Amino acid sequence: MPAVLSIPALAVPALLFAGSMWAADAPVVVTSIKPIHSLVSAIMQGVGEPELIVDGAASPHTYSLKPSNARALQEAKVVFWVGPNLEAFLEKPLEALGSNASVVELENAPGLTKLPFREGGAFEAHDDGDHETAAADDHAHEAAGAGHDDGHGHEESHAHHDDHEEHEHGHGAFDTHLWLDPMNAKAMAAVITTTLVAADPANALTYQANAKTLDDKLTALDKEIAATVAPVKDKPFVVFHDAYQYFEHRYGIRVAGSITVSPETIPGAERVSEIHRKVGELGATCVFAEPQFEPRLVNVVIEGTSARSGVLDPEAATLKTGPDLYFTLLRGIAESMKACLSST
């Protein structure tokens, strides 16, 4: 009869205590949005779980900090966010609550590809005051004052012609959806790893091993997505808002334009009519909505054209958090594009 290993009763509480001490040793790490949370989660596997501020279907463009978020920032040893151009709601709370934490703006990661805002042509000018929006919206924008930021990093048009004003708070005029290029994810992951190793050297080997695994997976993901979209990359399409430039740039995809640059600014009738015309003129094969916004505008844009509608989710609004989210997000965008564009 095989020997049975028994653990003395007094040893069980000791083992449980040791496990709780292991969990307590993990530093409190806070992340801003789901894609960043996913990258940090992958690197922290086996050590701890980072906290997430913008959870569920919430958007960083319109988010209001909750008391639980404020507590997390106060307790944090490390905070990762893209930066004030994207999560404007975090700028002042981080100054007030995150003073004891290492606060890392990933938009400053070395090696990032940064793309300027697109203006002109089929794209709406980034001036936060759509000339075709309703008079009430125009009045609201005027009341907000000159140099208003819409929370999406889009300064009013005059700010783009004034370098001093544009950079006086350290905000650059670039598209902030940086994570939609896996090579940018690699650059951000490198900074995340360095920061975690410095903050928690006891777990350095785990962080570094996880980072190597993540880097290899991102390389494979890049090749996979390139193959997925290759058959449809020359078919033009229109998006609800201009959030996909990094994805398009990386994979040579042909975008025809966007309905609006800011998902919080509802375009007026003239803007919708203009896009409707351009869908026909440019031969756009698909118009993509986003899960957190009503598809009504997209339906109006494609009415009477041969274009189809699809859904893209640039901020992972509908996805479950965790280390796999980033990969699900990128694959989802690629597969949605292929499915919609292949059927036209």
Rank of each mutant, 00 (worst) to 15 (best):
F288V: 04
H37F: 05
G151I: 01
G121S: 07
E303I: 01
A125W: 05
H37T: 00
V30W: 00
V298L: 12
L65E: 08
E168S: 13
E303Y: 03
P2T: 06
A58W: 06
R118N: 05
I225N: 01
A57W: 02
N108R: 15
T321V: 04
K320N: 10
V191I: 13
L178E: 03
T206G: 04
S99V: 11
F80V: 06
P84D: 13
W179Y: 14
V104A: 13
L325T: 04
R271Y: 12
K186G: 14
A202R: 11
P182E: 08
T176Q: 14
V311S: 02
I192W: 07
D149V: 01
A190M: 04
K233F: 05
V103G: 10
H167W: 12
W179D: 00
H177Q: 10
I302K: 11
D216A: 15
G145P: 01
L10G: 05
V40M: 01
S336W: 00
D127S: 10
V47Y: 03
L52G: 01
G120Y: 11
T265W: 08
A136L: 11
I333L: 15
L178H: 02
F123G: 00
T344K: 13
K114Q: 12
A146C: 07
I259E: 03
E49F: 00
G172D: 15
F237Y: 15
E49R: 05
S343T: 14
H177K: 02
F123V: 08
D137H: 13
D163F: 10
G151K: 03
Q45G: 12
V239D: 12
R250P: 11
A199W: 07
E166S: 15
T193D: 04
R308Y: 10
L341D: 00
Y251N: 05
A204W: 06
E335C: 02
P27S: 07
N69E: 00
A72R: 01
A227S: 15
A173D: 15
R71L: 11
R250C: 04
Y251Q: 11
T260L: 08
L94D: 09
A136G: 09
G83H: 04
L106T: 02
D216I: 06
E156L: 01
G56V: 14
Y244W: 10
T113E: 09
V301R: 03
G283I: 10
A11V: 06
V47K: 00
G121A: 14
P182G: 03
A256L: 07
F293W: 02
H160D: 07
V261F: 07
E124I: 06
G151F: 00
R250W: 09
V12W: 11
E51V: 05
P67D: 03
G120N: 04
I7N: 04
